[in-house]
Design a protein around this nucleic acid. Structure first.
Lengths: 189, 189
DNA sequence: TAGTTTGCCTAAATATGTTAGGCAATTGCA
DNA sequence: TGCAATTGCCTAACATATTTAGGCAAACTA
C-alpha cells in the first residue's frame, strides 16, 4: 500500500490550516488523520499526543508571527515601527484565526522557553528604542503594548466591536495614535 | 434511591468551581456527573449539551464580573473609578481563573445578547464620564480600556510577565497611571 | 392515597485519545 | 542487484466523553 508521507512538519502545518478553517478548539488527531486519509494511530509516530500536536501548532504560529513582525520592523522606527508591528498581529489574526488562537495556548515552561516568545518581547523592546524610556519604564511599556495589541485583537476576533456604529479600523488607528503620544510624552513622575 | 437534587443552577455553579480547580478546558459533563455522584445521562435533563454547559458557565462568570464591577464603581469617579474597575478584572481572574477563561468563550449571538456584556461596556462608558471625551473618541477609549484590561490579565495569567525582574504589580500601576494621564490629556487632533 | 409528573437510571451508539504489536514499503549496504 | 534493517502505516483493543431513548421510582397534586 502506498504511503502518505507523514512527517511532524506536515502534520503541524496541516493542523494549523485545519485550525484556521474550523477553529483551534476543533483540531483533533482524528480530524487530521481524516485529512491525510490515514488511520488515526498512524499519527502517533509523529506526534506524541493530542496536546503535543496543539503545542507544535502554537509554536509554529508564534514563529510565523515573529517572522512577519521582524520583516515589518526592518527599516522602520518610531511610530512607523509601532504601527507596522501592531498591524502584523491584527492582520495575522484576521488571516489566520486558528493559528492566532493557537499562539495563545498556555505552554509548559520548556515549550515556552523554546518558543519565539522571546523574540516577540525583544522586538517590542526594539520599537521602544524610538522613544525615550529607561528601565523599569521600558518593561512596563513592553507589557502595555503587548496587552493592548493582544487584547484588542482578541476582543475584535470575538466580535466584541461589532455592535456599535463606530468602525473598528478607526478605533485601532486612534489607539495607535494614543499609544504613540503616550510614549513620546512620558516623563517619569 | 435518593435524588441528588440537580438543577441547572447548581450544575452551572459546580461547573464554574470545577473550571477554577482544573481549568475551563477540562470541564466536562462526565467530570461534573462524577462530582455529583450521578450518572452522566442524568445531567442532560438540565443542560442541553456540553457546549450549553460551557455557555452557562461563561454567562455566570460575566454576570459575577459585572456585579463586582458595579460594586466597585459605586461612589467612585475619575482615576479612582478607573483603578477600581481594572482591579476587579485582575482580581477576579486571579481568584477564579477558570471562570475568567469561561468569560472569554466566544458566544453565539443570542447568548451574547443575553449576556452581561452590555453592562460591561456601559460601565466602561461610565468611567469615561470622568474624562472629557465625546463620540467617537469615547467609543475608541472604551475599546482601548477593554483591550488593555483583558490583554494584561490574559498575558499575566498565561505567565507572560514572570520572566523578568520587574514586578507585575508595578507594571499594572504604571499602566493605569498612563491610561489616566492619556485620557485626561486627550485633545481631539 | 392514587395519579401524574419529574428525576435519575440503564443501555446503546458514536467519537476521540492512546498503546501494542504486525506486515509491507523503503533504505542502506554488500 | 539483492538482501537486511528500518521505518511507516496498519489492525486491534481499551479508556473516556457525548448524546439519545426509554424505564422505574420518588415526589408533587389533588
Amino acid at each position: 500500500m502506498i504511503r502518505a508521507g507523514l512527517t511532524t512538519e506536515r502534520l503541524t502545518r496541516a493542523g494549523a490550516d485545519l485550525a484556521d478553517e474550523v477553529g483551534f478548539e476543533q483540531v483533533t488527531v482524528s480530524a487530521l488523520a481524516r485529512r491525510f486519509d490515514v488511520k488515526v494511530a498512524s499519527l502517533y509516530s509523529h506526534v506524541k499526543s493530542s496536546q503535543d500536536l496543539k503545542t507544535k501548532i502554537a509554536l509554529l504560529a508564534l514563529e510565523e508571527l515573529a517572522d512577519r513582525a521582524a520583516d515589518a520592523l526592518a527599516g522602520r522606527a518610531g511610530k512607523d515601527a509601532l504601527t507596522a508591528f501592531a498591524n502584523v498581529y491584527r492582520d495575522y489574526a484576521q488571516e489566520h484565526p486558528g493559528r492566532y488562537a493557537a499562539a495563545q495556548l498556555k505552554l509548559d515552561p520548556e515549550a515556552a522557553a523554546a518558543s519565539a516568545g522571546g523574540r516577540h518581547a525583544q522586538m517590542t523592546r526594539a520599537i521602544l528604542r524610538g522613544y525615550d524610556l529607561t528601565e523599569p519604564d521600558q518593561t512596563h511599556a513592553v507589557r502595555m503594548l503587548g496587552s493592548v495589541f493582544h487584547g484588542y485583537v482578541s476582543l475584535e476576533m470575538a466580535g466584541g466591536f461589532s455592535h456599535t456604529g463606530v468602525d473598528s479600523q478607526e478605533s485601532w488607528a486612534w489607539i495607535l495614535d494614543s499609544l504613540d503620544a503616550l510614549l513620546r510624552n512620558w516623563t517619569t513622575p
